[in-house]
């Protein structure tokens, strides 16, 4: 396969199997009524909880285009009335992390720095309790398999948003790469490196997951021309 072969005529080295994941929410024993308690619980809670309140919450709220990034930021604003901390927490892009441990450290660092600057905020009681949850995950196949690029586009159009989230957002924790399943396949098995990069640049924080799907389909349609 060479990069000069038109995209439509390329035969992928391997088919792309669209999978999806389903999550069952578990309530853990960790909770926070103050920012100091949030910091402590962030240190001690299971990694599943960090995943739930950052990666997973994006899926639960996939229909919101703006103003929602992770549960910690939302709580800092709505329950603690700390907009500056909320902005800093909201700026954490889960796609910059390939491990939940690194992501946890980033959240802890932001809260610690904020409480050093504003110690009075630490013990102040929040309006609502933050309950740390976690997910039990089941990964399963879908009926979509792409043996060619046009089938891949068709699959992308028709799978659920849960599948998009599974391959596009959660994937980096599996791959341990700053990439996603779709881009990996386009790069490694189809040889469409530029298209793979363009897909990976789609911004998940300024679009709904349906919007992300639309952007990806558009990028692929351009590649098929």
């Amino acid at each position: 396969m060479t990069s000069l072969t038109p995209a439509l005529q390329r035969t992928p080295a391997k088919p792309f199997y669209f999978n999806t994941s389903a999550h069952l929410l578990r309530i853990t024993r960790y909770k926070a009524n103050t920012l100091a308690e949030l910091r402590d619980a962030l240190r001690e809670c299971p990694e599943d909880s960090i995943f739930q309140h950052s990666f997973r919450t994006l899926q639960e709220h996939h229909f919101i285009r703006e103003g929602f990034s992770n549960d910690f930021a939302h709580w800092a604003l709505s329950a603690c009335n700390e907009p500056s901390l909320a902005e800093r927490l909201a700026s954490v892009d889960v796609r910059e992390f390939t491990s939940v441990a690194e992501l946890r450290e980033r959240f802890i660092q932001i809260v610690e720095e904020y409480l050093e600057q504003k110690p009075a905020a630490g013990p102040r009681r929040a309006d609502d309790t933050f309950y740390f949850c976690a997910s039990d995950i089941v990964v399963m196949p879908t009926s979509f398999v792409a043996h060619a690029l046009h089938e891949f586009v068709e699959g992308l159009r028709r799978v659920s948003v849960h599948s998009i989230h599974h391959h596009f957002i959660e994937a980096r924790l599996r791959l341990k790469l700053m990439s996603n399943d779709f881009s990996q396949w386009l790069h490694e098995d189809v040889g469409l490196t530029e298209t793979a990069r363009a897909l990976n640049r789609v911004d998940i924080y300024t679009a709904t997951l349906e919007g992300v799907r639309t952007q990806m389909v558009r990028i692929l349609e351009r590649a098929l021309l």
């Binding site: 999806t20 389903a22 089941v138 196949p141 879908t142 009926s143 028709r158 849960h162």
Partner: peptide, 10 residues
């Protein structure tokens, strides 16, 4: 259809 398919797979 995708969500109903997911239930069947589950």
């Amino acid at each position: 259809a995708a969500d109903i398919d997911e239930l069947r797979f589950l």
